[in-house]
Amino acid sequence: MTPLLSVQGITKRYGAHIGCADVSFDLYPGEVMGIVGESGSGKSTLLNCMAGHLTPDAGQVVFDTRTDGPRDTITMSEPERRMLGRTDWAFVHQHARDGLRMGVSAGGNVGERLMAVGERHYGDIRAKATDWLGRVEIDASRVDDRPTTFSGGMQQRLQIARNLVTGPRLVFMDEPTGGLDVSVQARLLDLLRGLVRDMGLSAIIVTHDLAVVRLLADRLMVMKSGRVVEAGLTDQVLDDPQHAYSQLLVSSVLQV
């Protein structure tokens, strides 16, 4: 089987400081991978390099495109990469404000990606947007309301709907449940799990919350100082961590 995403030797430096160094892994269709580590461990840098928001200093990010098979997204042209960004890729920001247009209605937010790929039938766009609001548990009556009138959890769900409406195959998530109440987090996690399963999505989730990766991720990478110190099955890494830092990370979590 061809990996959906094959990351090879990704390195990003900020001057003398290392953002991330020599990160490699393969992600297969339907897999969800978590990346954990403390603040500054390089996990967000890595995510942004993979998603095309940052240009790495070295390495390849090979994506199995629908039309041309595996292509290095770092060296592909910007229009092609941006096209991927609104079709086969999705990016869920930690802060919904960064991923939504706050001055545009919920329906317009969800419809934007459809219009970006050429849909020109208002009725169809609106019907799809409304359907997606339902799938992320937002009442259809809110379709014309702006996200500024939504709660934090609703905004995050709207961001997810906006990202998934074009049926992407790979979703990048940066602390998707950060900043939300615990009860809202739980609902969001369940929603994401269902969507990942039903749509056969692959996902890469960056978080510092080990509970989030335990529930969502099949695989886990632990990063420290820009390097991957341990990788494996999520429950194996969490229950039987091998590296000193992973052991410290796991033992630092408060038990409730």
């Binding site: 317009g108 990606r113 970006a116 766009i125 609106r126």
Partner: peptide, 29 residues
């Protein structure tokens, strides 16, 4: 809809005009 000039220029150069229809969508809704 997109206040960043750097971004709108890129949208023109890459023919990314979905946003223009968002404005018309908002009108109709």
């Amino acid at each position: 809809l997109e206040p960043r000039e750097s971004e709108t220029r890129k949208m023109h150069s890459l023919e990314e005009y979905g946003l223009m229809h968002v404005k018309l969508y908002e009108d109709i809704s």
